[in-house]
Design a protein around this nucleic acid. Structure first.
Lengths: 238, 238
DNA sequence: TACCATTTTTAGATTAATCTAAAAAATATT
DNA sequence: AATATTTTTTAGATTAATCTAAAAATGGTA
C-alpha cells in the first residue's frame, strides 16, 4: 500500500477507497461539463451545478485527487477533467441514473417529469449486481424516459441520428425521440400538448412573424409550437 | 420557530429537519431493541448494532433529541426509547426495507440471503411516493422474503399465528413461514435443504440422543434437522 | 505593458459523525 | 454496606464536507 504525504496529512493511496456520494456528484458534474464544452471544467461551473461555492469545489478536487489518484486531472487555476477511470465511474453513475428513471416510469408509473430527483438518490446505491439485474429486468433499454441514451455495462452509449425540431425540414414527418431541456415544467407542458416520446410530428408551416411553427401531430391534430419548444425537442426522421 | 439553548449551541427545534441516514439507523436500532426486550435500549446495545462505540451513541442520542425533539425519550444512564413519532419513523424504515427486499427477490431474482445489505441502503431513499408505488407494484405484500411482516403505510403489522419448529407437535403437518435467524449462512443452508418458505414439514421423530429431529419434507423426503435449525424456523400449522 | 475584473485558491471556521481515554454513575459481589 | 465491575457519559480529537473572507492568479483591455 502506498502513502502520500501532502499538507501534513497522510492519505492511503488506494483506488479501493469507497467514493462518497459528494465525490460521485462532483465526478458527474466534471464529466458533464467536460463533455458539453470539450475543455476542463472550471471550479465556478462545478460549484453552480453542485449548488456549493468555488472554494468548496477546490477543496473537494484536492481531496479527490489525494484520496483517489487517477480519477481527476487538475492543475491549479486550470480547471478539472477526468481520467479514463474517472470517466468510467461517471458513466456508470449516468447508467444507474437512467436505468432507475426507466424503472420509475415503466414499472412504477411515474411521469417523466417526476423521476429526476428520485433517480438522483438511487444512483448512489453501490451494488453492481443490483444494476445488472435491474437492466435485465427492464429489458436492457437503450434510452431513458427523456430519450437520453443509457450506457451499457462497459460504458458504451448508443447513438441515434437525432435533430432538433427546429432543424426538421418542412413537410417531413419525424418522431419525437428526446428532450434537450428536461425540467419538470417543460415536460409537463409537453404532456399537455401530447408531445410524448414516439409522437409523430410534421412541420406544416414556419411562421415568420414570431418564429412559431404550425405542426401536425400524429397525422391528425394541428398545433402551434413556439420556437423555444422546438429548440428543446429532439426528433428523428422516418 | 422555536430555539433551544443547550451546551452553548443553538439548535433549530423543527420536526421538519431532515433525518440523516445515521440518525435513521439509530432510530431503527432503538426500535428493534425496545421491541425485543420491552425496555429502554442501552447505549452499549445500540453501539453493538450500529458497529460504533457507546460514546458515539450517547452523542448521537443527544443530537437526535436536541435536533428532533419528540422522537426519542431518554434520561441519563437509563437508556433510550422512542416516542410515538419516533416509532412511526422506525416502522416506516422497516416497511421500506422489507418492500425493497421483496422487490429484489420477486422481481430481480435475488436469493433471500443476498438482499439484506442492499435493502439496508435502499431503505434510506426518502420519497414516500416511491414506496407507495413500489408497494402497489409488488401487490401490497404482507410478508417479506424471510417471512417477516411488512407494515402497511399506517404502520400496522399483520400478525400470523406462527410457532418455532421446535414447538410443533410430532406428526402434525405445518408450513415454513419464516426464519428467526436471517444470516446468509443459515439461509443458504436452508436453500440446500429445500427448506424454503412454503415448504411442508412434519416431525416424524424427536431424537433424545442429540436433540435432532427426523422430519418429512413436502410429503416425500425424509431429513434430519438439528435442534438449532428447528429453533430458527417459524412454521404455521395447517 | 500595466491595470482591472474575474476566477481560483488559501486560510480559518463550522457541523455531523465518529473515535479514545478518563471520569462518573449504576449494578453486582462479597 | 463497601467495594469491585460494568456501563454510560464527558472531554477532547479527528475527518469529510461545507462555508466566508481575503489573497493570489489569470485574462482582457486601455
Amino acid at each position: 500500500m502506498v502513502f502520500l504525504h501532502k499538507n501534513n496529512k497522510f492519505y492511503k493511496a488506494n483506488i479501493m477507497n469507497p467514493i462518497s456520494k459528494a465525490e460521485e456528484n462532483h465526478l458527474k458534474a466534471i464529466f458533464n461539463l467536460c463533455e458539453e464544452f470539450s475543455k476542463p471544467a472550471s471550479t465556478n461551473a462545478i460549484a453552480k451545478i453542485m449548488k456549493t461555492k468555488a472554494a468548496s469545489v477546490t477543496a473537494m478536487i484536492k481531496r479527490l485527487s489525494e484520496k483517489h489518484p487517477a480519477l481527476v486531472n487538475h492543475q491549479k487555476h486550470k480547471g478539472a477533467s477526468l481520467t479514463e477511470t474517472g470517466k468510467k465511474i461517471a458513466t456508470n453513475l449516468i447508467r444507474k441514473h437512467r436505468l432507475w428513471e426507466t424503472f420509475l416510469v415503466e414499472k412504477l408509473n411515474f411521469s417523466w417529469d417526476e423521476v429526476h430527483e428520485i433517480a438522483e438518490e438511487l444512483e448512489h446505491i453501490k451494488a453492481e449486481k443490483l444494476i445488472d439485474r435491474l437492466d435485465e429486468f427492464l429489458g436492457r433499454p437503450k434510452f431513458d424516459p427523456h430519450g437520453d441514451p443509457i450506457p451499457d455495462a462497459k460504458g458504451n452509449f448508443t447513438f441515434r441520428k437525432q435533430i432538433l425540431l427546429t432543424e426538421l425540414a418542412a413537410h417531413k414527418t419525424a418522431v419525437v425521440v428526446g428532450v434537450m431541456d428536461d425540467s419538470p415544467s417543460f415536460l409537463q407542458y409537453l404532456d399537455k400538448l401530447n408531445l410524448v416520446l414516439g409522437a409523430k410530428v410534421k412541420i406544416l408551416e414556419r411562421i415568420e412573424y414570431d418564429g412559431s411553427n404550425r405542426i401536425l401531430l400524429n397525422d391528425k391534430q394541428e398545433q402551434i409550437l413556439t420556437n423555444k419548444v422546438c429548440q428543446n425537442l429532439y426528433v428523428k426522421t422516418l
